[in-house]
Amino acid sequence: MKFCFRFICLISLCCLSKVELTAQAVGDTNILKLDYQGRRIMDADDAYSYLLKVWQEPPLWATDLYSYPDQKRLYTRHYADSTRRILQGLYTSYHPSGNISEQGMYENGKRHGRFEGWHENGKRSSLFQYNMGVMIDTNRRWNDAGELVYESVLNAEGTGYVKGMNRGAGFNESGPMLKGARHGEWTIYQEDRLMMKMQYIKDSIAISECYDSLGNVANGPCIYEREAMFPGGANGWYRYLQSNLRYPDEARRGEIQGVVKINFTVDKDGVLSEYSIASSPHESLSREVIRLLQKGPQWMPAIQYNRPVKMRHSQNVVFRLQ
């Protein structure tokens, strides 16, 4: 057998297979197999990464998404009809332990009303209020130690001020909101030192300035945030896999295929460590992914407020026999 692989850094599961199931009887449950991009798999021999359970709760339709092969529930969603395009009603996401991560209501595809979040340890992580997708009223976020790290006070149109967003290491980010979007001058301080100024227009940074330790405008690039990445980005990672990935003999003989989901840390120098397999079809595939990461070059570190920072990163590698 020949084999091929695919990869993805961060997957989005917001637009999963939208197969209409109008013939399904009330109370029946359909189980769909999805690939790593959330597309429905029709061939029984193809590798799949998720299981989607679909059933009707009149007048709504409901879905549970599970990762595969570990079969951990990721979320429960409700939709307005069988096309599953418009979120309506209760939404719940889950931590790997099965504890609730976030819960709230949707109205015509938009967050509406109270949304609450909890850390894995059970402590509250967030409490937000929405009016048809726009954040309103007083909203707060806490870290897993219970310390307040974010607070905003907004009117019924989502206009107001974020009084402080504690991003750790003494950083605080503040600025105005206009109808649910950042708009105007935002500042970032570390303790009492000005680090950055950004001019926002409807949530997009139009102009940014970084400052040195003396308070002068710094020369060179001024980067607000950037995720850690393989040298050369997605194309560089793809070329590296093409040249270096080996399909393990044990997995090939057993015709084992699927997605290895791995988490690891990229430190400020781009060195990788703390590998953790989130899920995998087989141990031999897990070992191969870890070998690839350990053998590879240093990564480009994450950037926050124009300085390199340590970051936890997730990566998926798909093994597929053909």
Rank of each mutant, 00 (worst) to 15 (best):
Leu241Ala: 00
Glu185Phe: 09
Val217Tyr: 01
Ser213Met: 12
Leu245Ala: 07
Gly215Tyr: 08
Gly160Cys: 04
Leu214Lys: 04
Gly270Trp: 03
Ala169Asp: 14
Lys197Val: 00
Arg182Met: 12
Lys202Asn: 15
Gln242Tyr: 05
Gln257Pro: 12
Ser280Phe: 03
Gly170Trp: 04
Arg252Ala: 12
Leu272His: 14
Pro221Ile: 08
Met196Trp: 01
Arg167Cys: 13
Asp192Ser: 08
Gly258Thr: 03
Gly270Ile: 09
Phe264Thr: 01
Gly254Leu: 11
Tyr275Ile: 13
Tyr211Asp: 06
Val259Phe: 01
Lys261Asp: 12
Pro231Asp: 09
Tyr240Arg: 01
Trp237Ile: 02
Glu274Phe: 12
Glu185Thr: 13
Leu285Asp: 02
Gly220His: 00
Ala228Met: 09
Glu250Phe: 10
Val260Leu: 06
Glu288Leu: 04
Asp249Phe: 07
Asn263Gly: 15
Leu194Ile: 00
Ile201Trp: 15
Gly175Cys: 01
Lys268Thr: 11
Asn235Met: 09
Glu288Gly: 08
Leu178Phe: 13
Ser280Trp: 01
Tyr189Gly: 06
Arg193Ala: 07
Val217Trp: 05
Gly180Val: 02
Gly270Lys: 07
Ser174Val: 08
Ala169Met: 15
Arg253Glu: 12
Gly180Asp: 00
Phe171Gly: 06
Gly254Cys: 07
Glu283Trp: 14
Ala218Arg: 07
Glu274Gln: 14
Gly236Lys: 02
Lys261Gln: 14
Ser279Tyr: 10
Ile207Cys: 01
Ala251His: 05
Ser276His: 15
His282Val: 11
Tyr247Ile: 05
Gly258Arg: 02
Ser208Asn: 08
Glu225Ile: 14
Met196Val: 11
Tyr200Met: 05
Lys163Trp: 06
Met195Thr: 09
Glu283Arg: 14
Lys179Tyr: 09
Asp267Arg: 00
Leu194His: 00
Asn172Pro: 12
Ser208Lys: 08
Glu250Leu: 13
His282Asn: 11
Tyr211Cys: 02
Gly170Glu: 06
Val259Thr: 13
Ala218Asn: 03
Ser284Asp: 11
Met195Cys: 11
Glu288Asn: 03
Pro281Ile: 01
Asn219Trp: 04
Leu245Trp: 05
Ala181Tyr: 15
Ser174Glu: 09
Gly184Pro: 05
Met177Asp: 11
Ser273Asn: 11
Leu194Thr: 00
Tyr238Pro: 11
Ile201Val: 15
Arg287Met: 13
Tyr247Glu: 02
Gly236Trp: 05
Ser280Asp: 07
Leu245Ser: 05
Leu178Thr: 10
Lys197Gln: 03
Ser208Gln: 05
Met229Thr: 14
Asp249Glu: 15
Arg167Ala: 02
Gln257Arg: 09
Tyr224Lys: 12
Ser204Ala: 15
Asp269Pro: 12
Gly215Thr: 05
Ser208Glu: 06
Pro248Cys: 03
Asp203Phe: 03
Leu245Asp: 05
Glu209Pro: 00
Glu227Leu: 13
Ile223Asn: 03
Glu227Asn: 14
Gln199Ile: 13
Glu274Cys: 14
Arg167His: 13
Gly254His: 10
Ser213Glu: 13
Gly236Glu: 05
Gly270Thr: 00
Val271Asp: 09
His183Phe: 05
Tyr161Pro: 01
Glu209Gln: 09
Gly215Asp: 10
Gly270Gln: 03
Asp203Gln: 06
Cys222Val: 04
Gly233Lys: 03
Gly233Leu: 04
Met195Trp: 09
Ala169His: 15
Val289Tyr: 04
Lys261Val: 10
Arg226Pro: 05
Asn244Cys: 07
Met198Cys: 02
Ser280Gly: 06
Tyr161Cys: 03
Met229Gly: 12
Ile223His: 02
